[in-house]
Structure formats: C-alpha cells, structure tokens
C-alpha cells in the first residue's frame, strides 16, 4: 500500500526545492477543494506557500491545460494520463519541453465523486475521507464505508499507463500496470448495436447538451485560439442547441482530438448535464489503434497519425 501522506510531503518538498532554486517560476498542483471529494488546481509561485499542495484520491483534474500559451518555467504535477497529454502538446509544439518540469506521480486511479453521490441516493455528502482502499462518506442521516475500487473513474478502470511515460522527477513508487485492461468494451458494446439504436442513443444523450463548452475548455488538446464553433466567416455550424448543430459540434470536436486523445476523462467528468462523452472519444482511440496501431502520448518522438500517412494504409472503405 502506498502512503498518501508521504507522497503529499514529497510533492511539497519537490515544489519547495524547485522554487527556492529558481528552477521554475510557478508550480501547478492540486489543493484541497471547498467541498468533500473535490480538489482544485493550485498555482504556487512562493516557496512559503507549498503546504497548500495536496495529494489524494480526488486529484482528478488534468492540469496540463494550464501549460498552454504560458511563457514561464513551470513545474507541474502530472499523473499518467496528464503526462501523456503533455507529451502530445509537446509534439505539437504547444509546450516547450525545456520550460516545463514534469513532476510525475504514478497513479492507481482517482475516485469518481458522481458515482459515490449516486450510491448515497443523491443525499448531500458533508464529509468524506479516503484511507487506503476505503472511502468513508458521511451525510446528515448516513455514514457509509465503500470499497475504493468500485468507485474509480471509468477512465481509470481502463488505464494502461498509470505511470507517467515521461517525467523529470518521479514522486512515489511505480505502480503495476494493468496490461489486461481492455479499454474498448463499452465501445464494442455500442458497435454491436444497430445504427438505428446508436443514433437513438446519441440523439438522446447529446440532446441534453447546453453548449457550455466545458468539455472543450477543460481538454488540454483543444487549444485553438479560434475554435471552429466561433468561426463566422464561413459559419460552419450554428451555436444553438438545435440537435443537428449540437451533434455536429460533438462529432467535429471528437474528430479534432482523434489520434491525440489520451482518455484522461476530464470532458465526461466536467459535463454539467452528465453526458458520457467518453463513448465518443474512446471510439476515436479504438479507430486509431486498429487502423494505425497508434497510442497517443507515449513517446516524444511520435508523429500524430492524422499528420502522416503510409502508402499501404487500409482502404477497405473505398468503393472498388
């Protein structure tokens, strides 16, 4: 069992050292949130403030978003998935490798608070504590202990890179990888349904979208200065929540992250209408794996699959 307190202390030590030695101007990590089971991104530029940094099973956000477009030397706390997004952004020249110090933390999964909220029937959780493999939640009229492994985020259940593939400083011991994680079970389930069933499913889910763009804004790969949604000359797709426009927004966003998405799960987690966006993003991962034998965010030398080609690429979809 890994000692969470040790990791937290080590993170603070590392941050203090980096800031004191002026190796970085800013450290981005997690701090305790204002509600149970929540953490918030934390920006430390003073070595005296490092005790704000926290590490626990609710450190779910993908912080690599905050590196884009910032011209400072930054130290960043990164789990496996976060480090992979950083790699993708480095290969796409959005982050300067020389300017970032990646503090990698091997992660065995973060907790999905929405699953826990559903488990207590929507009653308000007033206190929560994760110790080892147990989650204790307390509310006005209840107190429950739950096994952590049943309440991990969906993206963690199929994670095959729990150890950051790249980092400058590793905090904590490596965790064993789950090589048997078959990540595409949900996608295969949907693929087995008829096109009509799939259409009915997606129109129902995406019909709830209110076009808040939380999914786009939280994704580290959506860094375009002008998003296609805001383009008016030409006006590609409308901004209303007309079903056609909404579905196309999600289709196009997922096309844009195809081959780059590392399945950090942030988009699904932040959606206020609880749409399962991973049903779409995971499909692009599957397409890219099966067609081009590619997995995003593993090596700094890789070339994104949609930015290259092979003469012998499969073309079974072409009419003979």
């Amino acid at each position: 069992m890994r000692n969470i307190e040790n990791i937290e202390d080590s993170i603070r030590e590392v941050a203090r050292k980096l800031l004191n030695e002026k190796k970085v101007e800013l450290v981005i990590g997690y701090e305790k949130g204002t509600l149970p089971l929540r953490t918030a991104p934390c920006f430390i530029d003073n070595p005296d403030d490092v005790d704000k940094l926290a590490w626990n099973a609710s450190c779910d956000a993908n912080l690599s978003k905050y590196l884009i477009g910032v011209d400072k030397r930054i130290g960043i706390i990164a789990k496996g998935c976060d480090a992979r997004s950083i790699i993708v952004c480095i290969t796409e020249k959005q982050i300067d490798r020389e300017k970032v110090v990646i503090i990698g933390i091997p992660c065995a999964g973060v907790v999905d608070r929405k699953k826990i909220e559903a488990e207590v029937d929507g009653e308000e959780i007033l206190e929560a504590r994760v110790t080892g493999e147990k989650i204790m939640v307390k509310g006005k009229n209840f107190e429950k202990t739950l096994p952590k492994k049943n309440f991990l985020c969906d993206s963690c259940l199929t994670c095959r890179h729990r150890n950051p593939p790249i980092c400058d400083i590793m905090v904590g011991n490596k965790v064993p990888e789950i090589t048997s994680a078959e990540g595409f079970a949900e996608v295969s389930y949907l693929e087995a349904k008829s096109a009509d069933d799939r259409w009915a499913y997606f129109t129902k889910e995406l019909g709830n979208c209110i076009r808040c763009y939380a999914c786009r804004n939280v994704c580290p790969l959506c860094y375009c200065k002008e998003c296609f949604v805001d383009k008016t000359l030409p006006l590609w797709f409308g901004k209303t929540n007309d079903l056609s426009d909404t579905m196309i927004y999600h289709i196009v966003r997922v096309l844009h992250v195809a081959g780059r998405c590392v399945d950090c799960g942030a988009c699904s987690r932040v959606c206020p209408m609880e749409i399962d966006l991973r049903a779409l993003t995971k499909k692009t991962e599957k397409i890219v794996k099966e067609r081009f034998n590619y997995e995003a965010g593993i090596s700094l030398k890789e070339v994104p699959p949609l930015g290259t080609f092979k003469l012998e690429d499969a073309q079974e979809f072409v009419i003979e």
Binding site: A200, Y201, T203, L280, L306, F309, F317, I319
Partner: peptide
C-alpha cells in the same frame, strides 16, 4: 494519402454515431 486517413476516421465516426452506412462514399 493524407486525405485517406482523414476520410477513414470520419467515416468510422459518422457510422458509429448512427448516420447510415452509404451516405458517405469514397473512391
């Protein structure tokens, strides 16, 4: 060759969402 990869991904995603197979054709 660049287009081929783009079209492959587009067709797969559109069909997955439920747009009928046969609406998008490539040759």
């Amino acid at each position: 060759l660049v287009a081929r990869r783009k079209f492959a991904v587009l067709k797969d995603i559109m069909e997955y969402i439920g747009v009928e197979e046969g609406r998008l054709n490539f040759s």
